[in-house]
Design a binder for these strands. Structure first.
Length: 349
DNA sequence: TATCCGTGGAT
DNA sequence: TATCCAAGGAT
């Protein structure tokens, strides 16, 4: 069986030389000199990074920290402002839970994040991964961090042939056995960096991998096939209508979506149901078809017919927002795609 | 345990 | 073009 100390030493030496610079990170050298990561920034980055790439997160992280530099500031923010700032990043329950979590820290924990895995796990939006990640990266505790990268590295290092998600407990056990007591924060980031840059899903760069001599799958020549995964069901296609109503003065009809469900808590244009249900138009008008939007969500494809009208009628749902206050960037992507089809000169464009 | 929940980049 | 996939959590 692979010696944990060997793997730890190889990974940390690699990380010391090749770690990527990220705005929420403390470099190995700074950490060795006594620097500590800001738990707020570590937590915020980890929530943003859930199922999301570093490249997609960077600008959002900068905007959030510029506007809300600490957890107290975020806790005091308006819900709609936070949701608008999150728009485009996806998985909007993360933004709702982000606010719940910040307020819980502010009111129940004296404004400081819990410094243990168990304490962190009690917070909204913080699950096993994020709790371990914040505990190890921000507080340098020897917790086992298991994300998709770590699963892949473990599956290859130990040639785990069982497909995910069934293999998860085995992979976690391997990861736990390798977790070091020294430099656990740097180690956690090292494994994830390795998975993100070297031990990639396709075409892993084994030639430059610090663990190539330890890798069982590599020795067997099956590294590119691991981890195996059970086949996912095909995405069905759904259809719907998006109504974009404008007043002659340019105001735009928007509504806040229900807190739970798809795009929960986000602002958007009124829509019909997308699953066969048929909500009526938000007001009577001479609706004009301007095109269709195709958008793929996690578990279905959507084809959306885009209708527009200029009217002074009173809406039965939604609220007209003055054009000066309307920001397409505050909408989820599917809504912004619909807006992009509205002729620019229709009114106030 | 299985399903729901976004988005954009890579291939 | 279609599919896969990413530093997952809630229910």
């Amino acid at each position: 069986m692979t010696d944990p100390a060997t793997v730890q030493a190889l990974l940390l030496a690699w990380y010391d030389r090749h770690h990527r610079i990220m705005p929420w990170r403390v470099s190995p050298a700074d950490r060795a000199a006594g620097a500590q990561a800001d738990p707020y920034r570590v937590w915020l980055s980890e929530v943003m990074l859930q199922q999301t790439t570093v490249a997609a997160v960077r600008d959002y992280f900068h905007r959030f920290t510029a506007r809300w530099p600490d957890v107290a500031a975020l806790a005091a923010a308006e819900d709609a402002e936070v949701m608008a700032e999150w728009a485009g990043l996806g998985y909007y329950a993360r933004a709702r839970n982000l606010l719940k979590c910040a307020r819980a820290v502010a009111t129940d924990h004296g404004g400081r994040f819990p410094d243990t895995r168990e304490g962190l796990l009690s917070l909204p939006g913080v699950g096993p991964y994020t709790a371990a990640a914040v505990a190890s990266i921000a507080f340098d505790r020897a917790e086992t961090v298991v994300d998709g990268n770590v699963e892949r590295v473990m599956a290859r290092l130990f040639q785990v042939e069982e497909p995910l998600p069934g293999a998860k407990p085995v992979l976690v056990a391997h990861a736990a056995r390798l977790t070091p007591a020294e430099r656990p924060g740097d180690y956690a980031q090292a494994v994830m960096d390795l998975g993100a840059t070297i031990c990639t899903p396709r075409n892993p760069a084994c030639a430059i991998c610090p663990l190539s001599t330890e890798c069982t799958a590599r020795a067997a020549g099956v590294q590119a096939e691991l981890p195996r995964k059970t086949q996912k069901p095909a995405k069905p296609q759904r259809e719907g209508v998006l109504w974009i109503a404008l007043r002659p003065d340019g105001a735009v009809l928007l509504e806040e979506r229900p807190q739970s469900g798809l795009l929960g808590g986000m602002a958007g244009f009124p829509t019909s149901g997308w699953d066969g249900s048929t909500a009526p138009a938000p007001l009577k008008a001479d609706w004009q078809r301007v095109g269709e939007v195709r958008h793929t969500f996690t578990h279905f494809h959507l084809v959306l017919e885009i209708l527009t009208a200029v009217t002074e009628a009173q809406p039965e749902r939604g609220t007209f927002l003055p054009r000066a206050a309307f920001r397409p960037a505050a909408l989820p992507t599917v809504m912004r795609k619909g807006w992009d089809l509205v002729p620019r000169d229709i009114t106030g464009g």
